[in-house]
């Protein structure tokens, strides 16, 4: 967590999160987030060696559903929600292979 003191590269992280920020937003968030990360550093004081992480609030396992076909949505409802559609499909700007 020592990295935190160097501060976060807000611009880079915002790009990872696909958020275009203005220069003002970047500057504002930079200060606020650095302050929050500084606060979070109090966790450094804790020794958690040997402690299991908690990912779920309740210990439950093996929740399955049978492989049985259920109802799909009405196609018209699906397309009605699309900001842009053509030929019953969602239209997007040209996808370049990543």
């Amino acid at each position: 967590m020592s990295n935190a003191t160097q501060g976060m590269d807000v611009g880079y992280v915002a790009h990872l999160a696909r958020l275009e920020l203005t220069a003002e937003e970047t500057a504002l968030f930079q200060g606020q987030l650095d302050q929050i990360l500084h606060y979070v550093e109090q966790l450094n004081a804790l020794d958690v060696a040997g402690v299991e992480p908690t990912a779920h609030a309740i210990p439950v396992y093996n929740v399955f559903r049978p492989d049985e076909v259920g109802r799909s949505l009405d196609h018209d409802d699906v397309i009605a929600n699309a900001p842009s559609a053509a030929n019953g499909q969602f239209r997007v700007p040209k996808i370049i292979d990543q």
Binding site: M1, N3, A4, V40, L43, L46, V51, P53, T54, A55
Partner: peptide, 14 residues
């Protein structure tokens, strides 16, 4: 440093 650590402290709180 952040997420995993937080999950472990979550265990302590539980």
């Amino acid at each position: 440093a952040y997420y995993l650590k937080a999950q472990k402290v979550r265990t302590l709180i539980r």
